[in-house]
C-alpha cells in the first residue's frame, strides 16, 4: 500500500476543510440552531412526547443524520469532481496509487469531515435540549458507517457528473426528499398504514432509526435490521465503485 500517497490525498482534502473552516462548520451549526428554534422551541413545545421522549430531544438524532448525509455527499462529490474539472486529476492518475488507495484518501477525508460536523451538531443540540446517549458504541457505529457510505455515494456522483448541475442534481432530487421523509422529524409509526409501508422502502429510515435507538433505545425498526441495512448500503456503494474503476469509467480516457 502507498500509505504516504493516501496520506497526501487525505491531508490535501482536510486542508481544504481547514481553509474554509468558517463555512465548513458555521453553516451546519446555523441550520441546526434554526431547526431547534423552529421545531424544538416554537412548534415542538406543542407536540406531545414521542415514546416518552420530548419532541426537542426526539429530533436530535434525525438532525445529525440529515446534516451528515448532506455533508458527506457534497464533500465527497466535490472532492473528486473538482480535480476532474480543473485537470489536476492528472497527477493522481499518474501517481503509483491503486484505485483503492485513491478512494481511501478521498472518501476517508470526506467521512472524517462528516463525523466531525456530526459531533459539532450534537454538541450544539446539547445546548438546547437535555440529551442522553445510552449506547455510545452504536451511536459512533452509525455515525461513522453513515458518513463512509454516503461519502462513497458522493464519490460515485463526483465521478459520474460531467457538469456542476449534475453534481447538485442527485442530492436535490433524491437525497433531500429521502432524508426529510426518513423519519427525522417524526416516528414512521405515527404514519397511516399505507405510508408506513412506503416509508420502509426509504433507506434513510433505517439509518435514522438505528441512530435514534443508540440514543434512546427506541427505534422504528429493530437494531439488527438497521445494522443489516447500513452494511448492505456500504456493500452496494463499494460494488458500484469497484465496477466504475474496473472499467476505467470516466477517469482514464
Amino acid at each position: 500500500m502507498n500509505w504516504r500517497g493516501i496520506w497526501a490525498i487525505y491531508n490535501f482534502e482536510m486542508g481544504r476543510t481547514w481553509r474554509t473552516i468558517g463555512q465548513s462548520i458555521a453553516s451546519p451549526v446555523i441550520s441546526t440552531v434554526l431547526y431547534f428554534i423552529v421545531f424544538g422551541a416554537a412548534i415542538g413545545s406543542r407536540i406531545q412526547a414521542i415514546n416518552d421522549i420530548p419532541y426537542g430531544a426526539f429530533i436530535v438524532p434525525g438532525l445529525v443524520m440529515l446534516t451528515i448525509l448532506g455533508q458527506s455527499i457534497s464533500n465527497a462529490s466535490f472532492g473528486i469532481y473538482f480535480p476532474r474539472f480543473t485537470g489536476t486529476i492528472y497527477e493522481i492518475l499518474s501517481a503509483p496509487l491503486s484505485y483503492v488507495e485513491i478512494i481511501i484518501g478521498y472518501v476517508g477525508a470526506a467521512a472524517s469531515k462528516s463525523v466531525l460536523i456530526g459531533v459539532i451538531v450534537l454538541i450544539t443540540a446539547a445546548f438546547f435540549v437535555p440529551m442522553r446517549i445510552m449506547h455510545p458504541f452504536w451511536m459512533l457505529f452509525f455515525l461513522v458507517m453513515t458518513s463512509i457510505t454516503f461519502s462513497l455515494m458522493g464519490f460515485i456522483i463526483g465521478i459520474w457528473a460531467d457538469g456542476f448541475e449534475k453534481l447538485q442534481l442527485i442530492p436535490l432530487l433524491i437525497v433531500t426528499p429521502l432524508t426529510f421523509l426518513g423519519g427525522s422529524f417524526y416516528s414512521i409509526n405515527m404514519l397511516p398504514e399505507f405510508w408506513r409501508g412506503v416509508s420502509m422502502l426509504n433507506p434513510v429510515v433505517y439509518l435514522v432509526s438505528g441512530f435514534r435507538w443508540s440514543f434512546y433505545e427506541h427505534g422504528d425498526v429493530s437494531l439488527a435490521t438497521s445494522v443489516m441495512m447500513i452494511t448492505a448500503f456500504t456493500t452496494i456503494s463499494i460494488a458500484i465503485i469497484a465496477w466504475m474503476f474496473r472499467t476505467g469509467y470516466r477517469l482514464r480516457k
Binding site: W3, R4, G5, A8, N11, F12, A95
Partner: peptide, 9 residues
C-alpha cells in the same frame, strides 16, 4: 503534496 503522492518520505 506531489512527493507524497508518489510515496516518497
Amino acid at each position: 503534496f506531489s512527493r507524497g503522492l508518489f510515496g516518497k518520505p
